[in-house]
Amino acid sequence: MRNLVFGLLFIAALSACKSNESKTTLPIFGTRQALTKIVDGKSVTDTVYQTIPKFKFVNQYGDSISNKNLDGKIYVADFFFTTCPSICPQMARNMLKVYGTYKNSADVRILSHSIDPKHDSVPVLKKYADKLGVSGNTWWFLQGKKEDVYSIAEKSYLVAVKQDSSAAGGYVHQGYFVLVDQQKRVRGAYDGTDAKQVDQLIADIKTLQAEVSSKPIQ
């Protein structure tokens, strides 16, 4: 009898492990195309995924940051402004958790894009980062041309932002944290105001760190 109980427990423990392990891949978001190439005289079909295009912004230290700085990195992108009275403090509070978890990981970055570049100059962003308690090069606060920031938000990260004088603070924007993998593909979007979803993001970054099988995009 006792053996039977232990046996059942053992099976239960095994299946519990299994179900944990089975969730090791994250979806790939965006449009995809089938690309047929001729390789060594044979036609080979490959899937080409949507990726984050080239960009160039400036961070809180005044350094120029481009897509190249993110080559081979996992990163989280969001959109905010320093004088935002609505959802930003909650987003910052949650992003601090992500920062706290990965600030010593060389392969993880956080990119917070200001949607109010007129006010959020480099010194303003630096002061904001300092007051938030953020140092080093894990979390960048970025200033860029307004049209560039808005365009990359909507077309690439699929986050809606717009200027609206009737909204509190003058802008409306969505509080998503967008997870981008080492090949610049969007792998997740999490409500940055929801602590539970942000915990999931923290777990999913770990999943991406472990993901080594995928091939680099040409």
């Binding site: 609505s86 959802i87 403090p89 909650q90 509070r93 904001y128 300092d130 007051k131 938030l132």
Partner: peptide
């Protein structure tokens, strides 16, 4: 109030 000051009233770093 909670968005800025937090559900535990702890504020946010040196900002709030």
């Amino acid at each position: 109030c909670q968005n800025c000051h937090g559900n535990d009233g702890a504020g946010l770093s040196a900002l709030i």
